[in-house]
Design a protein around this nucleic acid. Structure first.
Lengths: 341, 341
DNA sequence: CTGAAAGCGCTTACAG
DNA sequence: CTGAAAGCGCTTACAG
């Protein structure tokens, strides 16, 4: 039988309370007592039953998710995943609050983080915008002992504990690899549509994409990046203009959101003129475009995985426990029309 | 506060034992009593704390995994994942036993399943071989009330409860799509190397691959499939012979295991003659080949996911509970050199 | 610095 | 058909 706290108490000749103290590194145990207990733990090969511990503790974790008010399918999906996590709160011993901020606005985000700080939650997750204000707000959260995780877009150099998102540099490289190979042998221009260069995830995708394209596919000419603020309407207009100006665009990398608008612009083109397209995030519109051949590949980050990972990490950090990095890595999914889930 | 069994007992005016009886659908409760309890459950919005229930039950699940003695990296990796699950047995309340069978041998597999049946485990997971003997053995397991899950390769038409593996037809289609596009514009022959047509997963991949290739890429000529029994040595020999006979092989789909041997044969070719290659399963050798450009894409099934899913499903079936199909779907991962984990 | 006792939310014999 | 009591493996005041 698996040894329990009772076994180790008996074996060490101490009470349950003392076992619990050394198990949880709580103070007030004589050195010699502690050693006896540790000896017993080692000898019996004790491993704590986490479920039972949680039951006894009855601890709940207060977490706040700060999400941008972006009107695109990915953010809406992310929000839904957070709502689902709220729904699981009972079973997971969490109390999750969601607050909104304007997108791409470092000032607004840092103000909101300060507001969140005031309720002293156990942890905060947010989609980062690059700005020194935000860096400073993170420092204040950490100072207050609050666990901090960035979600989807990171803020390296800040004191956040962890980033729950994909390797965006790798995503950009992957997109370039696919686009380049799908266009193999052809000459022409390649366009890129981003949300904003103020968010790290888009900047990193762009960098990765450009480096592979210029290195491995020098016959493709690269147009300046378009910033459409992840807004379908803006994207549609800008992309329509782009096609008017450059009739020889044969490849398009949509590295942000707002694909609905981009795809509308593409569909209004005669079929022969439509470029090969690599887009991000599997949504209703990219899925449909993949199915009917307008989009050739979709790189995806699983918002559900990201939210669940963020919560696991926040719990661990709130308890001062380490996280298993490999377990929390978020994969870049690649979808073609044939492996749609 | 979340309501507990105490709350619903009080509200319904019954004892804890009675609450437990209706909660778990156990017999011996008068209709009217049951209704009172159900009413209270509905009114208070009770949802059971599974962790506490498991703690109280102290139930453990005896599961047996039947694995083929295949000497390839994927099977070795799968085995390791099962071993890891054995390591988690304490926390997961499982007792997992692993038994070996010769590969591609329906007779041996069905004998082993009968042997397993004799110890009456709560559940069995196995890599299927298509054969009526195996079908019959599954029927006997089910008759004995044992939960049955196929792993990696399925046995549709049998009475297995569930298949923990990828959609292999979709995998074959995906491979054809990638290979066809990577070869766009070129003419030549495409070769396929399988393990054996006796296992469903390989047959389905082949079918999917052929259907897309013949439909969407008619300029590619398809060679007859090679069966290398997932054995690196056999594969190396057969593929070497193939290249000798057909100097114009420009594409290769390795849909089984034994990639080590296939890649050795390819590497001995002058660079200019090497085909575009799509292979299955991310192992040490396919990963290295992806990194140095010998392999162009790898389709992967995550053996860890499959094993954990199989265990979750076996538990649910052993308890007569339903499984959430969407949650147990195993994805087809696509890896290029740029998105390696 | 240490321990006895109660309790977390369930389930399980056992008695009636 | 129903209930009182003990127990699963931990943690937590409280007392000493």
């Amino acid at each position: 039988m698996k040894p329990t706290v009772h076994d180790i108490a008996r074996s060490a000749g101490v009470s349950l309370a003392t076992v619990d103290r050394v198990l949880n590194g709580r103070p007030g145990v004589r050195r010699i007592t502690q050693e006896k207990v540790e000896e017993a733990i080692a000898v019996l090969g004790y491993v704590r039953d986490v479920a039972a511990a949680n039951l006894a503790k009855g601890r709940t974790y207060a977490f706040t998710f700060v999400l941008p008010e972006n009107d695109n399918s990915f953010m809406i999906g992310l929000r839904e995943e957070v709502e689902q996590a709220v729904g699981r709160s009972g079973a997971e011993r969490t109390r999750i609050r969601v607050v909104d901020v304007p997108p791409f606005d470092g000032q607004a985000l840092s103000n909101m983080l300060d507001g969140v700080l005031a309720d002293r939650p156990d942890g905060v997750a947010f989609v980062a915008v690059e700005s020194s204000d935000v860096q400073a707000a993170v420092a204040r959260l950490r100072e207050a002992g609050i666990a901090v995780v960035t979600l989807v877009s990171d803020l390296p150099g800040s004191q956040r504990h962890h980033f729950a998102g994909i390797d965006n540099h790798a995503a950009g490289r992957t997109a370039a690899n696919l686009l380049g190979r799908f266009l193999s042998g052809r000459d022409g221009r390649v366009a890129m549509v981003a949300g904003s260069m103020l968010v790290r995830d888009h900047r990193e995708r762009l960098e990765g994409f450009l480096s592979v394209l210029s290195e491995d596919f020098p016959r493709l000419a690269i147009l300046p990046v378009i910033e459409a603020r992840d807004d379908p309407a803006i994207a549609e207009e800008l992309v329509t203009g782009l096609f008017r100006r450059y009739p020889d665009v044969i490849g398009l990398y949509s590295l942000g959101a707002g694909n609905r608008g981009i795809l509308k612009a593409v569909r209004s083109l005669p079929e022969a003129r439509r470029p090969v397209i690599i887009a991000h995030e599997l949504t209703r519109s990219t899925r449909a475009a993949l199915a009917d051949g307008v989009v050739d590949a979709v790189l995806n980050q699983d918002a559900g995985h990201e939210v669940r990972s963020a919560i696991r990490v926040l719990k661990a950090k709130a308890d001062g426990l380490p996280v298993i990095a490999a377990q929390e890595r978020i994969r870049i999914d690649i979808f073609l029309k044939d492996n749609l889930p």
